[in-house]
């Protein structure tokens, strides 16, 4: 995908996006609703045509082909199963449209039914299936013609939590078994983090960061990515010096820390550093990186959140895993220190 843009009237839904999706990978487009991820997906499928730029598949320009001319299939958000056809007829639809012989279609349909654990349900009307079963039929239908790329438009959003978890594993398995490139669209960060080989985080029509789940979580590129994924502490500071990919930052709240530099080096002298709550720990006052006053202590079962009021007015959250022994926690109002581990802090681009 190269320098692709799509505007509706004066509204720019997708703004100059270039993405390289590799063969056989599980690629996820992650972002809040209205960020342009679905529009991007629809341009790959052919339901929308880009206003500018090209969609390339194996170095072939497919940007202006009709959806039925593209070796790309979609699993729709509401499944879009044909209500007047049976399960088998739904799965075989694509092959039938391609003019494949009946015997071949039957064989593929049987194989697909087995693949999605719906053996023997071929003659059922799709309207009688449960949500999870419909989801699997939609998957089988899109996989049956063996597309080069499978597009999944928030396919799990209609399922309840338990079913969603098991379908996540199922999807990962199907991708591995079939070796087809999956492009998955979701607004659910957890879904994206657990399933994807690589993730593109999108906001306002632009791609903010592309990388593996780990890269995106541990080293967010900018404020949006850091804020959108997981819980984060933002600390203001100034650049004190840098060496290689690391820099030292003088924090407004006091103390100097070492933090990872974003790609392309530190943007300016005034900058923001992010620290995940679980990458920090409480310490005695004066022994940590900086000090503060302990505010609310909130117990979450598996862990406890400590809200530390910093001297510059900000709040810093420290998350501590609860253990059986239950280390004594300081009282609200006490002076405490906060210690950051090596590599815990990351400097943002903006």
């Amino acid at each position: 995908m190269r320098a692709i843009s799509k505007s509706f009237g004066t509204f720019l839904a997708v703004d100059n996006v270039t993405l390289d999706i590799r063969p056989n990978e599980f690629f996820t487009l992650l972002g809040p609703s209205g960020c342009g991820k679905t529009t991007l997906l629809r341009m790959i499928a052919g339901f929308e045509l880009p206003t500018e730029g090209q969609v390339l598949l194996d170095d072939r320009d497919i940007s202006s082909l009709l959806p039925n001319q593209r070796p790309v299939n979609t699993v729709f958000q509401n499944y879009a199963l044909f209500p007047h056809l049976t399960v088998a007829e739904n799965i075989g639809f694509g092959l039938k449209m391609l003019g494949k012989p009946k015997a071949d279609i039957a064989a593929v349909v049987a194989r697909m039914l087995k693949l999605v654990h719906l053996d023997g349900r071929g003659d059922n009307p799709v309207t009688q299936l449960s949500g999870g079963q419909q989801q699997r039929v939609a998957l089988a239908r899109a996989l049956a013609p063996q597309p080069k790329v499978l597009l999944l438009d928030e396919p799990l959003s209609a399922l309840d939590l338990k079913l969603r978890k098991s379908m996540q594993i199922e999807l990962k398995r199907l991708q591995a078994e079939t070796g087809i490139t999956f492009v998955f669209v979701t607004h659910d960060q957890e879904e994206a983090l657990t399933m994807s080989d690589r993730i593109a985080v999108m906001s306002q029509g632009q791609v903010r960061q592309v990388g593996s789940a780990r890269e995106i979580y541990d080293r967010p590129a900018d404020r949006f990515v850091a804020d959108f994924i997981g819980e984060t502490n933002f600390l203001e500071g100034t650049l004190a010096g840098s060496e290689g990919s690391m820099a030292s930052v003088r924090l407004k709240a006091g103390g100097i820390i070492r933090a990872g530099l974003p790609e392309g080096g530190a943007p300016k002298a005034d900058l923001t550093v992010v620290v995940r709550p679980e990458h920090a720990e409480l310490a005695a006052a004066g022994s940590g990186t900086f000090d503060g006053t302990l505010g609310e202590v909130i117990y979450f079962g598996t862990d406890t959140h400590f809200h530390v009021r910093l001297d510059d007015g900000g709040t810093f959250i420290v998350r501590r895993q609860n253990t059986r022994s239950g280390a004594a926690a300081p009282e609200t109002g006490a002076r405490v220190g906060v210690r950051l581990g090596e590599g815990a802090a990351q400097i943002l681009k903006d």
């Binding site: 499928a45 052919g46 339901f47 009709l66 959806p67 039925n68 790309v72 299939n73 979609t74 729709f76 509401n78 879009a80 199963l81 044909f82 209500p83 639809f93 694509g94 449209m97 391609l98 239908r141 899109a142 013609p145």
Partner: peptide
């Protein structure tokens, strides 16, 4: 009628007439 049904048909290689 759900518009995505015809989209699904087009996605599965149906020409406009076949859809």
């Amino acid at each position: 009628m759900d518009l995505s049904l015809e989209r699904a048909a087009a996605d599965l290689y149906a020409t406009p007439f076949k859809a």
